[in-house]
Design a binder for these strands. Sequence first.
DNA 1: GGCTTCCTCAACCATCTGGTTGAGAACTGT
DNA 2: ACAGTTCTCAACCAGATGGTTGAGGAAGCC
Lengths: 136, 136
Amino acid sequence: MVEEAASRVEDDPLSRVFAALADPTRRDMVARLASGDATVNELAAPYDVSLQAVSKHLRVLENAHLVTRSREAQRRPVHLEAKVLDLMTAWIERYRREAEERYQRLDELLRSMPDADPTPSPRPEQDQPKEQGAGS
Amino acid sequence: MVEEAASRVEDDPLSRVFAALADPTRRDMVARLASGDATVNELAAPYDVSLQAVSKHLRVLENAHLVTRSREAQRRPVHLEAKVLDLMTAWIERYRREAEERYQRLDELLRSMPDADPTPSPRPEQDQPKEQGAGS
DNA sequence: GGCTTCCTCAACCATCTGGTTGAGAACTGT
DNA sequence: ACAGTTCTCAACCAGATGGTTGAGGAAGCC
């Protein structure tokens, strides 16, 4: 057993979801599925790629837990799991809000001191001294 | 057919943003930048990759318009552009909401008819008959 | 000018990805 | 049982991606 594969495949859920939605075809499929389940054939119809390619796309979405596939005769209805989207929104909103609040605070600070000293980079946040090199 | 390059590089903004955030390192950088601008060196410190790799990551974020780089002496401060995140949230929320509303409606429908007929696939949405191949 | 610091460009490499085709599994229907 | 339909698996290929190292530009410091 010499297998030390799986080198760069980052398996964290968030990465999978983002990566899954980074493809316009896959995003389109999600948009489609938002208005109702569909079979692979139905999903494949609008695109000029092979059915196998669509199947692969669905696998990616499934691995990201964005969709689930059940069995219904020989068809495989695809169902959108919208809850996973919340995971992303939570991540995004957290940092968007943080950044915007910081921006607001900086804005107010600048407003409160109309003409103090023109120090170019007053970055007091991120307390990480970190003198890594020879810090003269 | 001599040269029709740029085959799969989908340049739509949304894809770029999603792809940019599909990498945990890049997501980490964004998280970091949410609490204040930083230089390339500062951003690179926590990771055990080369500075060039970090520079590449920043380029990806920049191409997605998630960050901007200015110039300050020989340093290149990186700034998070949080507004682009709204683009994603808008996309996500649209379909999440749509899917959840549909789910709610289906739920109510099922509740209103406790034991009707067990028709397996009553998908009345998505009107696309579409007999593509040689239909019998 | 010359050294140092910060960062980018260029070439290279391994892996991942999205597409293809061909084969065939799973199930229905007669 | 056999044919038809739906979809997946496997092998393959081209291009993108994330990492490396080496060279070097740009700006500050001596």
